[in-house]
């Protein structure tokens, strides 16, 4: 089993979002970067499958040098080697081209990633990569078992889930509860330092330009309704907020 896991380096879920340079750049000051939470599920499942079936797990990140901390953590969790495409992941199409270019050089049985990155939340890179490689793509996958060359999966849909069977190779966007998050142990952290990390340069052009960022308008004060008059809320929602 040869698995490629694509990971993002993203601001921590509790990070305060702000912008600099006339609202054209994300303000990285004081922000902690983490592995995308969905990517962590993908990586954990990949390592579980490797432990069960043998094979290798390669981590791929499209990102600048500051994402190497996240890549080393993935290696500590159990990936064997890593590739970093040295560029900002400018848009979904551009990022997918980088992944598909790397993936086309090897015969991966599985290409796993999170259902979406938590910075841009598009959730389309797995579909783009699948199309570019001419193989099926599925997301969000919450259960994955491998039997021979067949993958048995559960995918979440609106209001429920569906069971799916497909032959490898596949591109999958993952989410909980596909695996328990793995935490690196001391031995993992020590060996991660010497595992190979290859840096390659990007190919192709982006199809979009992000012109500026804006923050949502601040919320007005919360109107408090005393508990003894709770029923008044319904009248306010109907007559003042006009949502009923």
């Amino acid at each position: 089993m040869k698995i490629l896991v694509c990971v993002t380096s993203v601001p921590d879920t509790t990070a305060k979002i702000s912008f600099t340079d006339g609202d054209t750049k994300f303000n990285k000051a004081g922000v902690t970067y983490i592995t995308g939470p969905y990517d962590d599920y993908a990586l954990s499942r990949a390592v579980e499958l490797k432990e069960k079936l043998g094979g290798t797990v390669t981590v791929l990140n499209v990102g600048e040098s500051d994402s190497e901390q996240v890549i080393r953590k993935c290696l500590a969790i159990g990936a064997d080697d890593a590739i970093r495409v040295n560029c900002e992941p400018k848009d979904s199409y551009f990022t997918a081209v980088q992944i598909a270019t790397i993936a086309a050089q090897e015969n991966y049985d599985l290409i796993l990633m999170g259902r979406e990155s938590i910075d841009f939340n598009s959730g389309v890179v797995h579909g783009l990569v699948g199309e570019m490689l001419g193989i099926p793509s599925l997301s969000p996958v919450m259960k994955l078992e491998i039997e021979g060359t067949t993958a048995k999966m559960t995918r979440e849909i609106e209001g429920g889930k569906e069971d799916i069977e497909a032959s490898l190779p596949l591109v999958l966007g993952c989410q909980e509860p596909i695996a328990e998050w793995k935490i690196p142990n001391m031995r993992g952290i020590m060996t991660a330092r010497t595992k190979p990390l290859r840096v390659v340069e990007p190919v192709g052009d982006d199809l979009t330009i992000t012109e500026k960022f804006t923050l949502p308008a601040p919320k007005g004060a919360c109107k408090m309704i005393p508990a003894e008059n709770a029923e008044e809320l319904i009248a306010l929602l109907k007559n003042e907020a006009k949502v009923l």
Binding site: P11, I17, F19, D91, I118, D119, F120, N121, L207, T208, I209, T210, E211, K212, F213, T214, L215, P216
Partner: peptide
């Protein structure tokens, strides 16, 4: 973007 914590204006 950022799960509703901000917006981006993007040229296609």
């Amino acid at each position: 973007i950022y799960t509703g914590k901000a917006f981006a204006t993007v040229e296609m």
